[in-house]
Amino acid sequence: MWVGAAYVLMPDGTVKRRPVYGKTEDVVRRKLTELQANSDQGIPSDATGWAVGAYLTYWLDCHVRPNLKPATADNYAVIVNNYLIPGLGKKRLNKLAAADVRRYLASLANSCLCCRAGTDARRSADQRRCCAVGRCCSRRPSKRLVQLVRAVLRSALQAAVREELIRRNVATLVQVPSPGYGINRGLSLVEARAVLGAAAGHRLYALVVMALYLGMRRGELLGLRWSDIDWADGTLTIRGNLQRTGGELRMVTPKSEGSRRTLPLLGLVVEALTRHRKLQAVERDAAGDRWVDSGHVFTTTIGTPIEPGNLRHAWFPIVQAAGLDRRVVFHGVRHTCITLLLDLKVPPHTVREIAGHATTEVTMTVYGHSSLDEKRKALTLLDQHLS
Rank of each mutant, 00 (worst) to 15 (best):
G134N: 11
V20H: 07
T237K: 10
G234A: 09
V195K: 02
T365Y: 00
D74T: 03
R244M: 07
V208H: 09
V328M: 12
V133R: 15
G234P: 08
M10I: 00
G42W: 15
D230F: 09
R334C: 08
R154H: 05
P348L: 03
E374C: 02
E34N: 10
G288A: 06
Q41P: 02
A151V: 01
W226L: 08
H369I: 06
G201Y: 03
G89N: 06
I302N: 11
R217I: 03
V133N: 13
D228K: 08
R123M: 12
D40K: 15
R103K: 10
L60Y: 12
G22H: 05
D230G: 08
N81H: 10
V292H: 12
L157W: 04
V28I: 06
P19T: 04
H357P: 12
V161S: 12
R122L: 09
G323E: 09
K31G: 04
A286M: 11
L273K: 06
C337Y: 04
L382I: 08
T24M: 07
S142R: 15
W226G: 04
G201S: 07
A286E: 14
D126V: 03
V176N: 04
D325E: 14
A211L: 14
E248K: 14
Q147C: 02
G87H: 06
P317A: 05
D40G: 01
E307K: 03
R17Q: 15
G182Q: 14
L386M: 12
G186W: 09
M216Q: 06
R193T: 04
E248A: 13
S107V: 01
V319R: 03
H349F: 15
A99Q: 08
G134T: 01
G134E: 13
E191Q: 11
G87W: 01
E353D: 15
V346M: 12
